[in-house]
Measured scan of single mutants.
Amino acid sequence: VFVDDHLLEKVLELNAKGEKRLIKTWSRRSTIVPEMVGHTIAVYNGKQHVPVYITENMVGHKLGEFAP
């Protein structure tokens, strides 16, 4: 499973602090992992960042699938 390192670091850091804030990313190719559930990730679609709230059903899919 591929997840960009910088994105995973941000998610794990927020989980350690117990925070839930918006994470901006250009990494549409990253796979959604269970650690991301409950976070809102702003995924770049080529024009703007689209906020995507991550749920359990999204695990295993790519971030780009949810930012048309």
Rank of each mutant, 00 (worst) to 15 (best):
V1Y: 07
V3L: 04
V3M: 04
D4G: 03
H6C: 15
H6I: 14
L7S: 00
L7W: 01
L8G: 01
E9M: 14
E9T: 13
E9S: 15
K10T: 15
V11N: 00
V11M: 02
L12E: 06
L12I: 12
L12F: 07
E13W: 09
E13G: 08
L14A: 09
N15G: 02
N15T: 04
N15S: 03
K17E: 06
K17P: 01
G18S: 06
G18K: 07
E19A: 06
K20R: 09
K20E: 03
R21F: 11
L22P: 13
T25I: 01
T25N: 00
T25C: 03
W26Y: 14
S27Y: 04
S27P: 01
S27D: 04
R28P: 04
R28Q: 05
R28I: 05
S30A: 03
T31F: 10
T31I: 08
I32S: 00
I32M: 05
V33W: 03
V33F: 05
V33E: 02
P34E: 12
P34K: 13
E35L: 13
M36D: 00
M36C: 04
G38Y: 08
H39N: 02
T40A: 08
T40F: 07
I41C: 02
A42V: 03
A42T: 02
A42Y: 03
Y44T: 05
Y44L: 04
Y44E: 02
N45W: 08
G46S: 08
G46N: 07
G46M: 12
K47V: 14
K47N: 11
K47Y: 11
Q48W: 13
Q48K: 11
Q48E: 13
H49W: 12
H49V: 02
V50H: 12
P51F: 04
V52T: 09
V52P: 00
V52M: 06
V52C: 10
Y53C: 10
Y53S: 11
I54A: 04
I54P: 03
T55Y: 12
E56N: 15
N57C: 11
V59Y: 15
G60L: 14
K62G: 08
K62V: 12
K62A: 09
K62M: 11
L63E: 00
G64W: 10
E65V: 09
E65Y: 10
F66E: 07
A67N: 05
A67H: 04
P68L: 09
P68R: 08
